[in-house]
Amino acid sequence: MADKVKIKVDHLTKRFGDLLVLDDISFEVKKGEFICVVGPTGCGKTTFLNLLTRIYQPSSGELYIDEEPADPKKHNISFAFQEPSAMPWLTVEENLEFGLKIKKIPKEERKKRVDRILKLLGMENLRNAYPKQLSVSEEQRVIIGRAFSTYPDLLLMDEPYGQMDIKMRFYLEDEVLKLWKEFGSTVIFITHNIEEAIYLAERVLILSNKPAKIKENLEINLSRPRDVTSEEFIELRKYVTDQIKWW
């Protein structure tokens, strides 16, 4: 069961007019897997993610979830965006409930899930706070909590820690691993930070320069918790850095 293919990306191609951004991308993700996507700056990582969420429609190719073409109305997809995306008029609690209400989850169950997330995030005392009253990192944690609250089939994250300092990043990376283990979600995490990718992922997809193709599909077999100062870690980091060099 652990090896069951959850997500299948099949010959995905995206063109904006004459500009080919993604060129024939195919890969599979197993249920409960944590995948990081890295690539040179401007290679089309965000476009790739927007295709997976169906914010953009592909020029050709398809994305399958459980062998069916992905459909946000049918499948349980979540997205943690790079930019602040907590609803400013909703409290932390209501923000966590936002996706659950769209998915028509009953009230009792909603409350149970929100309580669970708040406890995991250690934010119970901020339950009734508005995003404006939170720090940037707290708001980002609410966004990530909200993404996990629907127990998604597929959770997509687009550099959610891009704006954090290094200390906060380390803390939040551990937190996202904790949530991932707790909920067993399938995660595709996009980042430009190679250290972050190797710290988090079970597998790293390295994209080439635009038009982006999959350059390499790299298994990360380091034990957890991972030590960023260990020799193997540094070696892997160096290797991936060499792979995305375009100069």
């Binding site: 914010i55 946000p72 997205f79 998915k103």
Partner: peptide
């Protein structure tokens, strides 16, 4: 904000639901 609209879209909200629960409150 397009990001807020996308949040609702990704969760599978209809256009009218997004209008009512994202568009209108953000315009208050």
């Amino acid at each position: 904000s397009q990001a807020l609209i996308n949040v609702a879209k990704v969760y599978g909200a209809s256009n009218f639901y997004t209008f009512l629960h994202v568009g209108v409150p953000s315009t208050v």
